[in-house]
Write a protein that binds this DNA or RNA. Sequence first.
DNA 1: AGCATAGGCGCATAAGTATGCAACGCCGAA
DNA 2: TTCGGCGTTGCATACTTATGCGCCTATGCT
Lengths: 149, 149
Amino acid sequence: MKTLRHNAIRELVSLGQVANQDELRRKLRRRGFAVTQATLSRDIHELRLVKGPGGYTFSNGAGQAVEDNSPPSLDDMIEGFALRVRRAMNQVVIATVAGGAQPLASALDHAGWSDIVGTLAGDDTILVICSDHRRAGDVESRLKAMLES
Amino acid sequence: MKTLRHNAIRELVSLGQVANQDELRRKLRRRGFAVTQATLSRDIHELRLVKGPGGYTFSNGAGQAVEDNSPPSLDDMIEGFALRVRRAMNQVVIATVAGGAQPLASALDHAGWSDIVGTLAGDDTILVICSDHRRAGDVESRLKAMLES
DNA sequence: AGCATAGGCGCATAAGTATGCAACGCCGAA
DNA sequence: TTCGGCGTTGCATACTTATGCGCCTATGCT
């Protein structure tokens, strides 16, 4: 359950204003996650969110995080950047945290998935073009699985 | 005096680890600024510092810059940026003034239209992905209506 | 000078966040 | 099955940060 909750948190944070942990708790409860503030405090720590003027945001690495000396895996990237995966026809759309689209798309390209024809990345959205509906469905499920790991 | 203290705070923060306001207070005192935690709380607010894992840092510009106190409505944005709306299959393409694509796309994302799967913005063009033909048609008409209001 | 107003500050305390501890559930080994 | 370890959570509470209020000083106006 924890991973799903983390995704929900990331989505809520990226989406709008989350002023404090208690507000986050109420919003999560409306989505079916009933946890206490204590748990959210731990979640926020794990997700490395920071609270600035105007609520929580993603700590955009700047606050010298420990350096990875190993290139992050695709799973890690998805875990770190992706927020939501949706499909439309032969296309899959990935919503990411701001600025996360480019690196994640690049990682996808290099992953060599044969059913991906190409990717196109904006700032916080990736468009994945697949050869047909079915393959798009496959890709969607695989991505969702990774997101919910 | 306040300005000098602010500079000292900025230096301490950029320099190293400032774990919390009380530590900051002690370090400032060594430099000749004797103030209470309450004052530092206000200073930090004014300097827009954020506390992340590992102490205070400068507000992470990337994490969506501080909000305008009156976020323009979606109508306003369309009114201000959009030039033309056209549809192709499950996609809607919006032409905007140069540089207008990114902000307008962002506004669309945050509008929470359920039939929009995602948006992808270049400099003066937005690609809106809808779940299917019909919904793309809906979105197209709604956008056109707003554009012609 | 006499008075009004504004900003900075400390104090006390409210508001918000982190954490030690114990309880619970879920494996995997014996 | 029974046991032990591990991970997750809630509870209670410690710790940290924000803020209402009042005092003080500086500044400006009459």
